[in-house]
Amino acid sequence: MNTPQRLFVDAGQLSDFGPGTVTLIHEANCYLSRLDDGGLLAISRKCTHLGCAVPWVVERGRFECPCHASIFDSTGNVIQSPAPRALDIYLITLTHNRIMIDTSKTVKRSVYVAEQLFYPQELG
C-alpha cells in the first residue's frame, strides 16, 4: 500500500554535505544542494514541465530531464525550457546538527532567489 508520508526526513549530518555538491535524498524524493557559499536548498525531483523524475548529471553539473530535455542549474533555476518555472523546494531545519527536510509541503517558485537558501550557521 501507500507508504505513509513522513513529515520530516532526516537527510544526515551537516558535515556530510560539502559546498558545491548535490546529493540525492532518496526517502524525501529530493536533492540537497549545497551552494559554494554554504547555503542549502532541498530541491524536488519532480520536473515542473510534466512531472518526470529529474536526474542530476555530475559531469555537466546540472539537472537534465529525460522527458523533454528541460535543464536546470544547481539552484533549480531553468536553463532550458520547456519547463515553465524553477524546480519546487522543501523547507529545511537543523535539529541536533542533523538536516531535516519538511516533505509535507512543496514550495512552488518561479525562479530561484537568495531568500530561499537555508544557512545552517545562523541557527546552529
Binding site: 524524493n29 518526470c52 523524475a53 536526474p55 522527458c67 520547456p82
Partner: peptide, 27 residues
C-alpha cells in the same frame, strides 16, 4: 519505479495530441 524515468515517456496515445500542442504553444 517512481525514481527512474525511462528514456521515452509519452502520455497515452489519445492524449498525445495535447502533449504535442503543449510543445508548440502557450500552456
Amino acid at each position: 519505479n517512481p525514481s527512474l524515468t525511462p528514456e521515452t515517456v509519452k502520455a497515452p496515445w489519445y492524449f498525445l495530441w495535447l502533449q504535442e500542442l503543449l510543445l508548440h504553444m502557450q500552456p
